[in-house]
Design a binder for these strands. Structure first.
Lengths: 309, 309
DNA sequence: TGGGCACATAGGCTGTCCCTATGCCTCTGC
DNA sequence: GCAGAGGCATAGGGACAGCCTATGTGCCCA
């Protein structure tokens, strides 16, 4: 399912938002470092692609039409996610000496870090960060060896020599398409869930291990072979949405789909699928500078969630 | 704040996700209707922009590296929002005869319709839709005149001649930046909120009217002049995040910001800021065909939310 | 050891995008 | 009433990115 080409170039939409904010095409052009005619033409071709007028041009500037407001409203989340993506990419680049080295588990790196990094950038804009992702053991190694200033892990037991603080919570959830039989009751027993073939990550992944560990803790030694093993979260979601079968994923991965009811959550009785996500650093070496800032930002999220529940 | 060019072209990221799903560059290329060398080069330049290897190339296909999984994970939400945007744009095009004509208030059109339209497309892929956005009076007119098959409004009183059903709920919320004094208490009185200059939409907008109406109902006749009037939701959020002052917006507009604590919600005592969002159609003319499908999809969301609270 | 599969490289072309220069319109101030 | 400034549109030309076909290279397997 390739992306429609109409929306594949974000620059024009970004320009549209700038026009909305600044009130004129010329000022928007300047804000984007391009000439006014270029911006004018881009917006014109954008209108051509959309098929309706987005701007009301006057001799004193330009305003959005109603359609323009809608398009701008739809484009804003795309650009916001794109900023997250950019923040993540920036942190992956290892080509410059960084002031802040982060090691994180995949769940934290994928779902929480981009927003933290953007927040960090507003606090200390000049901090360059480098992110290394791996499982909890790998993260602990990096931090203990001094190759990372701050680590984020998702295991319940903190490795020796590290001090930790809970910054967020993860939870595995079972989800099905709205038309699936389980979607009606919204609850299954742990035994039944274990006996049902699920769509899941490949064996050895953190998610898969956590699922099997939770079943083991509940006294269920054996579980059914997966219905389908896929290596990307997106592919698993697509399979579940397509009705292939129930899937098990991190709640962070399906939050948006639950909100729009693209997927439905199914509670699993008698099964504890929660995991604390912790920041870790060498014992006795309290984080300072940017690492301290990031820790503060990350900690904000947990106090927030605690308040709201 | 222009978008970094690194992330402005979504095609390459879409291609990366296809590689993750299909397991080879060649198959991903075919899925996107391009030649294998083109895809190969695109991915290579993408890796260059990111700065690290994203793919592990073997003679039997290609797999994502750890960094590749991260980038794919960050890119997926961008593409999902882009699909929403595309669905919205498609519904704005009036160039083909449509089977389903929708009239909707700005709030519904901006925050709820894209997801509904995507869901509708999976139910009946051949349904073409045309969307007209306007205020509640305008929507009612369209539906009554037979120029729209289904309408969505946000007023409490249903215009004569129309049957309605509640499909979702809107709520105005006051938000501030995390550093703002109000962020600590998370609660202000209605009198104090009314007396404080806020960042808001321009006079005459639905949001502004609803805010003033709620104050009036609470017996507060007069409110302070706005601190700043802006014409786009995004601009208002940017102002609030920047610490200019408290802003009042639809909860749908700030949901993501509340989740990441970019903004903090402040409850306003003794003020009812809820509004039901209703679907409307001509009395006695029960929606059929695609209109009925859309109504079903829209109604799903309200039962869902009711369950979760 | 050859064939098939998958990715990489080479060369050439097309199209897009951007820039500078200029024109037209409107509003404003004298 | 007129001149100037601000804002958008148009014209023309040049640079670069992206795509395609054809071909090369490495690996696996029969």
């Amino acid at each position: 399912m390739p992306l429609p080409s109409r929306v594949s170039d974000l620059t024009s939409f970004d320009l549209l938002l700038s026009v909305a904010e600044l009130g004129s095409i010329g000022r928007a052009a300047k804000a984007h470092g391009m000439s006014q005619p270029s911006a004018s033409e881009r917006l014109r071709t954008l209108e051509g692609r959309v098929g309706v007028a987005l701007l009301e041009r006057t001799s004193r500037g330009a305003r959005l039409t109603t359609a323009g407001q809608l398009v701008a409203g739809w484009a804003a989340p795309v650009l916001a996610r794109a900023l997250d993506l950019d923040a993540g990419i920036t942190s992956l680049r290892a080509d410059r000496h960084s002031q802040l080295r982060i090691a994180a588990s995949l769940t934290v790196a994928e779902y929480l870090l981009p927003a933290w990094l953007i927040a960090l950038r507003t606090v200390s804009p000049d901090t360059a960060t480098v992110l290394t992702a791996g499982n909890s053991v790998h993260v602990a190694e990096q931090v203990l060896a001094g190759r990372a200033d701050l680590g984020f892990i998702e295991s319940t037991d903190v490795p020796a020599g590290l001090t930790s603080r809970v910054v967020a919570e993860d939870e595995l959830v079972v989800v099905v398409a709205p038309g699936h039989p389980w979607a009606r009751r919204r609850r299954v027993t742990a035994v039944k869930a274990a006996a049902t073939p699920l769509v899941s990550r490949e064996s050895g992944s953190g998610t898969r291990q956590a699922w099997e560990h939770a079943l083991g803790t509940a006294g269920i030694g054996e579980s059914a072979e997966p219905l389908l093993e896929m290596s990307s979260t997106t592919a698993i979601k697509a399979a579940a949405i397509g009705g292939i079968g129930p899937a098990v994923l991190s709640i962070h991965a399906v939050r948006a789909d639950l909100a729009t009811r693209t997927l439905v959550r199914v509670e699993v009785s008698d099964l504890d699928l929660h995991r604390a996500l912790r920041a870790v650093w060498p014992a006795g070496r309290t984080p300072r500078g940017p690492a301290s800032d990031l820790l503060t930002i990350a900690t904000r999220s947990v106090t927030h969630r605690a308040d709201r529940r």
